[in-house]
């Protein structure tokens, strides 16, 4: 029974995240447009874009290798598997024992390497520049993420995402300064990893953009569709991760039955909508920073995460 419920919730979770991924991006764009006084494309516009791109014939550069063709699949698949590990409406899904935060970070790194190699495959200046910047940012984002994970590991005693979420939901943790600091660090990492506003501008689709899009210049057709879908999945993953860890309220247990799942789904949708709105507000309010300010931004996140851990050392030492 337990395994059946776990499998069922896992399947539902996968269907849900696949459906929701383009909508998250679409909603963010729509909300941003509204806030800037434009009408904006409807939230389901990314679905249309994907369908159109899939219909088109992909063109590869003459000297492109297998890397260009395989990388988008690898990136989408790894991001999808990582997303399958992050709980949405229910906890205790079939993949929950696998759902380790370090593994999620590792899978995201794999997707990143696939993207970077695809950017370098043809040997163009823009692709190389974007690749160089992407890997450079990750050198600052990874430690911040890992030290934030350290805070969760101290509180939950494990890096398993399901256990962390369950501890934060049920445990009497109260409001913790350290968790707030860790949350800010995670947010900064999320913004950097998704190439969002202060780090990179997701709105531009030109060569002038700095990091993420620069690596995609040579891809077209279904390859571009896959890359766009991967970006959407990654954004959803980070939002779901933040929701699962810092807003764990209302999530159902896997064995609790369809009614509880429905409530959990409602709670998840509300959380995701709130995070999307927050992202849109933040992006509308803030300007992009220069590339070489990014290490400072992520370094500050790392220091805050370290501070969070230090405060936790103190309080665990006292308890």
């Amino acid at each position: 029974m337990q395994t059946l419920a776990g499998l069922l919730t896992q399947a539902l979770h996968l269907a849900l995240v696949l459906l929701a991924a383009p909508l998250v991006v679409g909603c963010t764009r729509w909300l941003k447009a509204r806030m800037m006084g434009r009408r904006g494309a409807p939230p389901w516009q990314p679905v249309r874009d994907l369908a159109k791109l899939l219909r088109k014939r992909p063109v590869l550069a003459e000297n492109a290798s297998l890397v260009s063709e395989a990388a988008p699949y690898i990136a989408v698949v790894t991001t999808l598997v990582a997303l399958a590990l992050v709980p949405s409406f229910a906890q205790g899904m079939a993949f929950a024992p696998l759902g380790d935060l370090l593994l999620v970070a590792g899978l995201l790194a794999l997707a990143r390497v696939a993207l970077v190699l695809a950017g370098m495959d043809v040997g163009t200046a823009f692709g190389g520049m974007g690749a160089a910047r992407e890997v450079s940012f990750s050198a600052f984002a990874e430690p911040a993420l890992l030290v934030a994970v350290l805070s969760f590991a101290i509180l939950a005693g494990s890096t398993n995402l399901d256990l962390v979420a369950a501890t934060f939901r049920d445990g009497q943790l109260g409001l913790r300064v350290s968790l707030a600091l860790a949350a800010i660090a995670m947010l900064a990492v999320a913004l950097a990893d998704n190439a969002r506003m202060p780090v990179d501008n997701p709105g531009t689709h030109l060569e002038l953009t700095m990091v993420h899009e620069a690596m995609l210049l040579e891809s077209s057709g279904r390859h571009l569709a896959l890359w766009e879908f991967q970006a959407a999945l990654k954004l959803e993953l980070w939002l779901a991760l933040l929701a699962a860890v810092f807003l764990p309220f209302g999530t159902a247990a896997a064995g609790a039955g369809p009614l509880a799942w429905g409530l959990g789904l409602l709670a998840w949708l509300v959380k995701m909508a709130g995070l999307t709105l927050a992202l849109a507000v933040f992006e509308s309010a803030i300007a992009k920073m220069r590339v070489f300010r990014v290490p400072e931004f992520l370094g500050a996140a790392l220091l805050l995460a370290l501070l969070a851990a230090a405060l936790l050392f103190v309080s665990t030492g006292l308890a």
Binding site: G174, L175, R176, V177, S178, A180, L181
Partner: peptide, 8 residues
């Protein structure tokens, strides 16, 4: 907790 959070 709230006082603590404000301090934070």
């Amino acid at each position: 907790d709230i006082a603590h959070l404000l301090g934070g």
